[in-house]
Computed example of a mutant assay.
Amino acid sequence: MVSEKPEFLIAGAAKAGTTSLYHYLNQHPEIFMSPVKEPDYFGGHFWSLPLNDIYGPDPKLQIYQDWDEYLSLFREGKGKLKGEASPSSFYYFAEAIPEIKRRLDNPKIIIILRNPVDRAYSHYTFKKRDVKENLTFSDALDAEEKRMQENYHYGYFYKALGFYHRPVEAFLAEFSDVHIVLLDELQANPEHVIKGIFQFLDVKDDFEPSLDVVYNVSGNPRMKGLNKFLRKKNPFRDLIRPVLDVVLSEKSKTKLMEKIHQMNTAPKEPLENSTRQKLLDLYRSDIGRLQDLINRDLSQWMH
């Protein structure tokens, strides 16, 4: 009998490449990814909603806390290997893992990790790009504990999201099939990394997905007006959406939008050396423990 439940989860760190992995795997004819990229069921089934952002309570977040509603995301995937990609499952591992085991038993787990200093700054600039952050990076780091107390969405926890050792250790201890990917490797040799994931998932590894788009790139918008048009709801977008729905598939629309975002995104300003060193000092011990745990060379993260 074909299960409605997902058989694998991408549970990597936020802003470490989970969105790109989601879209690359979703191209495989044997794989079905949930139409909502981040349902957040396992990492968010216990959240007290609505969560806050810089504008106050945000009731528009698409979070699936009901099990049957979550399962409905996979009903169109009959006959395919089903998966989803919610970074919240990684950050809230202590709450997520028991629920994953209760609901899914022993799914395959893909964890993608990134230099935690780069991850933190990328996450911040991503929020700035989307007009969802109004503080400097230094002030946002200082405000993190207060935001935690005020029930902010975890996407504002720039420092806390970079501690990987404990969640990786927990996933390795609780699940028999865990595949760890480093963003550095994905960027350096995407074809090899994706083929390895296909082998891990036991689907045909000779399929070659389109890897020309990197999703959710952080940076500064070249044209702020275009960025606002693309990022904020407006009547004209609502008017042309039905036309695009007829002409393009959902996957094609997503790819087109990301290409436009990439063309309109200039590289972010370099992170100040003093702030980089401060974050590196914060993460150094955790990086060392992670390196020993997964037996991978992470020396490039140490400077």
Score class of each variant (00 low, 15 high):
Phe8Ser: 00
Tyr215Gln: 07
Asp238Leu: 11
Leu239Gly: 04
Lys233Thr: 05
Ser48Gln: 15
Gln300Met: 04
Tyr22Asp: 02
Gly43Glu: 03
Asn106Gly: 04
Gly12Arg: 09
Met148Arg: 15
Gly77Ala: 06
Arg119Val: 04
Lys259Val: 10
Glu185Thr: 06
Phe163Thr: 09
Gly225Ala: 04
Tyr152Pro: 03
Ser20Asn: 03
Leu256Gly: 04
Ile111Lys: 08
Phe163Lys: 10
His23Asp: 05
Lys60Trp: 00
Gly79Gln: 03
His261Gln: 15
Asn264Ile: 07
Met148Tyr: 08
Leu141Phe: 10
Glu250Trp: 02
Lys278Trp: 05
Thr275Ile: 15
Glu258Cys: 00
Asn234Lys: 01
Thr136Ile: 06
Ser274Ile: 11
Met1Phe: 12
Leu271Pro: 13
Ile100Cys: 02
Gly56Arg: 09
Pro50Arg: 07
Phe198Gln: 10
Gly155Tyr: 02
Arg102Ile: 01
Leu9Met: 09
Val36His: 08
Leu141Tyr: 13
Gln65Phe: 00
Pro107Cys: 08
Met148Cys: 07
His179Gly: 05
Leu161Thr: 02
Tyr152Ile: 07
Asp206Gln: 11
Arg114Gln: 09
Pro59Leu: 12
Leu248Val: 14
Lys251Glu: 11
Lys108Glu: 11
His153Lys: 02
Ala96Ser: 11
Ser210Gln: 07
Tyr22Ser: 13
Ile287Tyr: 02
Asp286Glu: 09
Arg102Pro: 00
Val117Lys: 10
His303Met: 07
Tyr154Asp: 11
Ser299Asn: 06
Pro267Asn: 09
Leu61Phe: 08
Lys159Ala: 15
Phe198Val: 03
Leu230Gly: 15
Glu99Gly: 01
Thr125Asp: 05
Lys251Ser: 14
Leu141Ile: 08
Phe171Glu: 13
Val243Asp: 10
His165Lys: 14
Lys128Asn: 02
Leu51Val: 15
Ile260Trp: 06
Tyr64Lys: 14
Asp205His: 10
Arg289Pro: 01
Glu272Thr: 02
Leu201Phe: 10
Phe90Asn: 03
Glu84Tyr: 05
Gln65Ile: 00
Asp297Glu: 11
Ile260Tyr: 06
Gly44Gln: 09
Arg166Phe: 02
Asn52Met: 15
Ser20Glu: 13
Lys132Phe: 01
Lys268Val: 07
Val193Asn: 04
Lys146Arg: 13
Leu135Trp: 05
Asp206Arg: 03
Glu269Ala: 10
Arg296Glu: 13
Lys251Asn: 15
Ser210Ala: 07
Leu226Pro: 03
Ser285Gly: 04
Tyr154Phe: 12
Glu191His: 14
Lys224His: 05
Lys159Arg: 13
Leu211Asp: 01
Ala11Glu: 01
Asp105Trp: 00
Asn295Thr: 07
Asn295Met: 03
Glu133Val: 03
Glu150Pro: 01
Ser3Asp: 13
Asn295Cys: 05
Glu76Ile: 00
Phe236Lys: 08
Arg284Asp: 15
Val36Glu: 15
Pro116Ser: 13
Asp212Ser: 14
Ala11Trp: 04
Pro39Met: 12
Phe207Gln: 03
Thr19Trp: 04
His28Gly: 03
Asn273His: 14
Lys37Ile: 12
Arg276Phe: 15
Asp206Val: 08
Asn115Ala: 12
Val178Met: 14
Asp238Thr: 06
Pro235Ala: 07
Asp130Ile: 00
Ile100Phe: 01
